[in-house]
Design a protein around this nucleic acid. Sequence first.
DNA 1: GGTCGTCAAGGGGTG
DNA 2: CACCCCTTGACGACC
Length: 320
Amino acid sequence: MKIRLGYVAISLTLNDYIHYKTLSYSQYQKLGSEKANKKLTEIILNNLHVLENILRYNVKNGIYFYRLSQNMIPLATHPEVNFDYITPFLTKWQKIGQFIKHHQIRVDFHPDQFCVLNSHHEEVVTSSIKILEFIYHIYQALGIDNGKVVLHIGSSVMGKKESIERFKKNFFQLPLPLQQMVMLENDDKIYTIEDTLTLCEDLHIQMVLDYHHYRCCHTKYNLEQFLPRIFATWVDSTYPPKVHFSSPKSRQEKRAHSFYLDYKSFIQFLEIIKKYPYDVDIMLECKGKDEALFRLVRQLKFLNQVKFSKQAVFTLTIEN
DNA sequence: GGTCGTCAAGGGGTG
DNA sequence: CACCCCTTGACGACC
């Protein structure tokens, strides 16, 4: 089975001078719309340049899995700001999309805490849909027609059962292309593996296992009991199953992400998943980004337990 | 040249 | 209801 490692949004080892730029709404207002729009154009051009550089750097370093940052286009979903972040840059978007497809890179999105599809506030649901539309537009611009987004189930206002019903209702009201993007991840507080898996099965969507959330908060559940069903949500997918992996910052702050990864628990995780006949893409969600990825790779190479074909791609022998 | 507070936004928990 | 916590990375303000 093939394992690909990926990292989130920014590279710490690429180059100090290459980083995404942003613009806050208060800065936008201070500039006035004309200057602000000019600024936004500069920022988008810069950020697309950065994205392209990161992807090239990833391929050069054998990394074929990368989470796109929602902050790539600042204010794109702000209710008071309207601008076209696609058409004026379409050539650039398409060029990047070609690169992604040519190198068979897997990219995806994971919006931050403000995307709550099952909120009991209607305006929060509306803005959450706007975030999904934004992501859809980016995929369209890149020419990626099976792009995905990982969400949490979200709120638990009025109880979990009721909240899951709200999720279903709002999910089915989404336009089909948006529904087809959605995958769900178990979280660290409310929704366990079992909750998330059951909902994914109901909706016929993929479940992304977050091993860190499972380990820090829901260990009373037996992971192995659910793994066959989690993998089964992926059988019709064009992508291999995806999991999130990271390590706790400390014993006290076990929910927070550490900078580097604990290679011992990573190996333990590999021991678990190698019982199943699936390729797996593992998103490393740690503060150390690619720096932590490279360190983990060095540790695994040193231990000589797996066979690397590329820097962040290796094979595991399936146990019988 | 380094450190700190701010940012559009939610949700949950506490008192 | 008011306030705090969680969380992200860039940036402006400040020393």
